[in-house]
Amino acid sequence: MQLVANIIVLSAIYALISCGYVLIYRVSRVLNLAHGELMMVGAYLLLMTASFTSNPMVAIPVAAVLSLTMGALVYLLLMRRMTGESVLAAILTTIALGILLRGLIVIFFSAAHQYPAVPLGIHSSSVQVLPGARISSLSLILVVVTALVYASLFAFLRLSRWGLRMQAAGQNPLLAAQRGINLHAIYAMVWAISMFTGSVAGMLISLDAGLDQTLIMIGLKAFPAALVGGLDSLLGALIGSLIVAAAEVLLIQYVNPLLADVVPFLILIVMLVVRPWGLFGTREALDRV
């Protein structure tokens, strides 16, 4: 039972992170390999706001709004310039951005392991969720938040006009532009949302476990989850996260704890061999890149 609870928590973490990869890829066909770093920046934004106020009801929303803004700025100041460049150039730009952010984070916040939960007075307690399974209260919140984020994303993409425009831009950017849709605005919006969801994940993880550069690795491991599900499918990201998390928890438990960092990538390789476009992805996505 404890294993089941652990799988659910880990898949919630991966799902909350991997939707960021999916959103950006689905709408703008860019693979954002800086997502792990952007997510970490979100967590450090919380550390920053926590140094001004000890009220989590202020610190967390302010940090979330800052991350939303920063996500849009990443597109408008940097990625916008990569329009029309090769796939490789766009990926490399995100990698370069990631390296830059890693450096800046250490310069501004130091490399030490820090706890944003302390100034905010947040204490995690253990909660009984299933018979014989306990998780921390923050993990429970994380699962709930992930569910909420996915529900709102589905609703936003399916029901709101801007969500529909995002889908339209992803399907056929030329026609979207022709229908009066400002692609730059759409892309800026999707980068903002993506960084926002990533940051929320980063904040919740760091409130529970503290914060340092290892957060990036979690962000990178969420990427195979997105790809296993299909890079252009949100539902896929959800299922992919569940698969990767289950495999990781079970293999660590029964085979070898050292496998932790490599399991998601093993699954990724298997998926690339069998069905590269993922469980729920569209096959054409493969030819488009």
Binding site: L164, Q167, A168, Q171, N172, L174, L175, R179, G180, I181
Partner: peptide
Amino acid sequence: DKVFPNLSVHENLEVVSS
């Protein structure tokens, strides 16, 4: 490629920004 294939007929008319 004159319509958005994964959107419904009505959604195709909704996405227009003008």
